[in-house]
Design a protein around this nucleic acid. Sequence first.
DNA 1: CTGAAAGCGCTTACAG
DNA 2: CTGAAAGCGCTTACAG
Lengths: 334, 334
Amino acid sequence: MRTVAKQAGVSYQTVSRVINEASGVAPETRSRVLTAMRELGYRPSLAARSLARNRTEIVGLVLPSSVDLTFADAHLLQMVGGVDRGVSDNDYSTLLASPKESEPVLSAFRRLVRQRTVDGVLIEAGMGEEGVALLVDAGYPVTVIGHTSLDVPSVRPDDESGAYVAMQHLLALGHRRIALIGSENPGNLAVAARRSGCDRALADAGLALDMSLVERGEWTIASGRAATERLLDLPAPPTAVFAFNDSMAIGTLQVARERGIEVPRQLSVLGFDDTPSAALLTPALTSVRVFSAEQGERAARTLIGILRGMTPPSSPVILPSQLVVRSSTAPLTR
Amino acid sequence: MRTVAKQAGVSYQTVSRVINEASGVAPETRSRVLTAMRELGYRPSLAARSLARNRTEIVGLVLPSSVDLTFADAHLLQMVGGVDRGVSDNDYSTLLASPKESEPVLSAFRRLVRQRTVDGVLIEAGMGEEGVALLVDAGYPVTVIGHTSLDVPSVRPDDESGAYVAMQHLLALGHRRIALIGSENPGNLAVAARRSGCDRALADAGLALDMSLVERGEWTIASGRAATERLLDLPAPPTAVFAFNDSMAIGTLQVARERGIEVPRQLSVLGFDDTPSAALLTPALTSVRVFSAEQGERAARTLIGILRGMTPPSSPVILPSQLVVRSSTAPLTR
DNA sequence: CTGAAAGCGCTTACAG
DNA sequence: CTGAAAGCGCTTACAG
């Protein structure tokens, strides 16, 4: 910076002003400085700037480490892409923070706090609320991507109405024995919202959920398979299965095929998330799309807005979800 | 730091020594300092440290922005996961750098250079060589993930032998009219390597490639479809199609189904990359697995090794690829 | 509109 | 083994 100042014949403070586009620099001086900067290939030091201003213009992004990074995480990839778009469009940068393989989940949060290298943090809801609380206590502005029970800004899909519309779709096709996979997980707010959307659709039709058809899943293909085996072994098996994510729906599709049950003629299957694989399955899976990239981008914009002094949204930002009807659901034929 | 020093009854330089685990601190002093740090919840400032030491312990990761973040990018997600694992295991952090939607690709590299916020850069080969050169010229240590013609460290899959084994598989099944999709792209080194693996397998069998069966693809499902349409319209259509990625193979699968051609009975289909969707297709796709996460992790370790003063590997680090045989390939029946 | 001063929180030789 | 000094490259009031 000194060199630039010398070359332009001004003090280095003036150079600083030019860089920060502060007002109060004579146009002529300004252009002289800019020329000098260009000629010398000057690049300001982010570190020095951060130190002096006490902020880095970097936001952290905490992600589950996903030991098995299977296609189920297509959602994650899209979210990351969206986040980075929102972040870089605002001239911030994104620092990744996922827990090391060997460490407990909270360590990723601790490291972030310890290093003081970010101005704020975006947190994928799957990381749990404990970490969020830890960051908030450390004084970081945060935004959660997904459901949270804490009083922090968040961006999430409309799970309730997504499930509502999906359930309505199955009811309109004539299904009455409708199984759910993925419920019963008490702490999971997304599940609770989807569950309540289902209940509302049923209530609207004057029906109620048959609890014997509600299975617990673990979001994996394997757990979808296991749940489906149990459901199909029932004396009166369901005519439709609504799985709370696509992976479990894939498990259902697989088991149905193995048992020679035709989808959708004998069994309708509905997923959630609309991962890119959904369209490629046979039959192509009807699913609820959640717009992961948009969530990420919106969360990034929200956080950076807060960092820039805007008042945080007082309630969660809810992005619409959308039922995508494909070939795995059909009218009841029996 | 001053406060900690005061509380521990030492000078702040001693605190610095403790933090940096420098030798030459009396054990007793050391523990006093550590206690004070803990009591005060002291966290060193990365910015100050970076400024004083002239390094940040952050590495940049340049990724294609992927306007359509489809499942084809499962490879990318796994790579990012691997990178972050390799990076954080070494106590560095990963800064994402993808071009903004509105900008030319090179802008992402320029921004990285301009901000001086990383010590080194990992570059996905898909970003082109121009950006790599730009960073090298700016003095950054870099490591490329994928093929590069530049003289920089790189980590990539063994495309040649992957294609060789895949081709051998098709030949062993009795196929002779084997089509290739994805070739003819002159600049793409991965394609060239795969192509030469194919040629070698054919030569080993005393055969040569039938150029009328070589189609150009653009890595998308749509381009795979288009290429397949052309191939199947040929007077003597192929009995097997080897697509140079899974997306194009999916295109082939789709067109075959639409035309009532049974895979694998009437047509064998082989992909490349072994994306997570491959196993979920009907029929499940035979493909060449490339271990994306391992590539990312290895590249991260390589780069950080260089940053720590190790001599860079003089030739590309080549990770084995592996043929995964599923249900889309079968012996020739006609 | 521009310059001089102080300070951001560390590290790195250099003394002792 | 530990302290005093200088410096990393900026920004931010404060004068003028």
